[in-house]
């Protein structure tokens, strides 16, 4: 192996390690005892194994309540964004009426509209209508903010599917709806799955709206609820916080590894064609 190749492998190792060391640090410290976490100089390999941080997370702090809140809000938002996104994306890719195209352009603008820009008005509107501290309202809000992204990714998938098989099915006696269910949907499934995962991930990771709108502790999603685990005066239990971090990161990473092949193509489509 030449010197250049050795250098290339060295760079690859640095890049991969740099990407995953923070995750290693989370896992390492979530499962070792406090005395080992606090030891200085720090140690890089575990000498103890404990579940005490998770026990305290669930039994003392009741963190499962916040994870359930997150799961409910994220799945509702994802389902709503996908159903409406599939409908609109199919409509936009198959029909070229002016009003339909205008909705497409509007949703592209909405896609580029950052949450912080509308945070204040949306807070005013929701709280003004008595929907401030409401998990359903939060899910609907997420669905609305994620819809433009879902719509554009799905549209590029539907555009990529030939219209011929669909027309053939309709000539063979299928209704348009039947052709959509039997011909279009199965072909678009990879696109729908990758869109679903990105949408779920975005809803699951959202912090700004959740922390601003949800005022009662028992309705908090897991992200802002992390702050309930922090001691006052900076006395953090890092083991506890890293255990909470694992519960937040796990669903996202499981989905990612299950579907990473589709995700890459989905993200590329969205970024390049969208």
């Amino acid at each position: 192996m030449g010197l250049v190749r050795v250098l290339q492998y060295a760079c690859l190792a640095v890049v991969v390690l740099g990407s995953i060391i923070p995750l290693y640090w989370i896992v390492l410290n979530a499962f070792r005892v406090d005395s080992e976490i606090a030891a200085y100089p720090p140690t890089f390999l575990p000498r103890s194994f404990t579940m005490e941080h998770f026990t305290s997370l669930f039994e003392v702090y009741g963190f499962q309540q916040y994870l359930i809140n997150s799961m409910l809000v994220s799945t509702t938002a994802t389902a709503a964004a996908l159903v409406l996104g599939v409908m609109a994306a199919y409509g936009m890719s198959r029909f070229r009426y002016r009003a339909v195209r205008a909705v497409g352009e509007l949703s592209l603008l909405a896609y580029l509209l950052p949450p912080i820009l509308v945070l204040v008005p949306i807070t005013q509107i929701l709280i003004g209508n008595g929907l401030g501290d409401n998990r359903v309202a939060l899910a609907v809000l997420y669905a609305a903010t994620l819809l433009p992204f879902a719509l554009w990714i799905l549209r590029s998938y539907f555009n990529g599917l030939g219209i011929e098989t669909e027309e053939a099915a309709m000539i063979d006696g299928c209704t348009r709806f039947g052709a959509f269910i039997r011909v279009v949907l199965p072909q678009a499934l990879p696109g729908i799955v990758s869109t679903a995962i990105f949408t779920f991930n975005a809803a699951w990771s959202e912090y700004l709206f959740a922390s601003t709108l949800m005022t009662s502790n028992e309705k908090l999603p897991a992200n802002p609820a992390i702050f309930l685990l922090m001691g006052h005066m900076g006395t953090e239990s890092w083991g506890l916080l890293m255990a909470a971090a694992i519960t937040i990161i796990l669903p996202v990473l499981v989905l990612f590894f299950m579907a990473q092949r589709w995700l890459v193509s989905g993200l590329t489509e969205g970024a390049v064609k969208g």
Binding site: S205, P224, I249, V252
Partner: peptide, 11 residues
């Protein structure tokens, strides 16, 4: 190398 992109900001 894609993992950091999936890690939620709070984590």
């Amino acid at each position: 190398v894609l993992v950091p992109y999936m890690v939620p900001a709070i984590v």
